[in-house]
Design a protein around this nucleic acid. Structure first.
Length: 114
DNA sequence: CATCTGACGACCG
DNA sequence: GCGGTCGCCAGAT
């Protein structure tokens, strides 16, 4: 499961901070692997202690189904994240750092990539 | 082994 | 600013 990297990133998000699918994907040097990221969270591996509610869509927009969206908002507000229509990524956005997966991907990306 | 889908993102018109 | 299309990853059928 390569999702291990995704879970790891999400778990690294401290309380009161949020991230985005694209953010995690970018941390992995993936352009639009956001799908995989979302899918990974969609698996919702409860028990892994994964704060999936801290993961939002681009622009801090919630990209989750209704039942989860409400819960997510509630949980984030509980953590101190003020949510209007969307979350201010410039404030709560968590700057992901290089991850193991990113390094590996980066090394491999030594090809005619732009 | 081939094809479609899915909690997405970015770009183009 | 909105809508449609392409691109990406991994898993399921």
């Amino acid at each position: 499961m390569s999702w291990n990297a995704v879970y790891r990133q999400v778990k690294k998000i401290p309380r009161g901070r949020v991230s985005t699918y694209g953010g995690v994907a970018k941390a992995m040097r993936l352009r639009a692997g956001a799908r995989a990221v979302g899918y990974a969270l969609a698996a919702c591996p409860r028990g892994q202690g994964i704060p999936w509610h801290r993961v939002l869509g681009a622009g801090g927009r919630i990209r989750v189904p209704e039942p989860h969206a409400a819960l997510q908002r509630k949980l984030l507000e509980t953590e101190g994240v003020k949510i209007g229509v969307t979350v201010d990524m410039k404030i709560y956005g968590w700057p992901f750092r290089k991850s193991k997966a990113a390094a590996a991907r980066k090394k491999k990306r030594a090809k005619p990539r732009r």
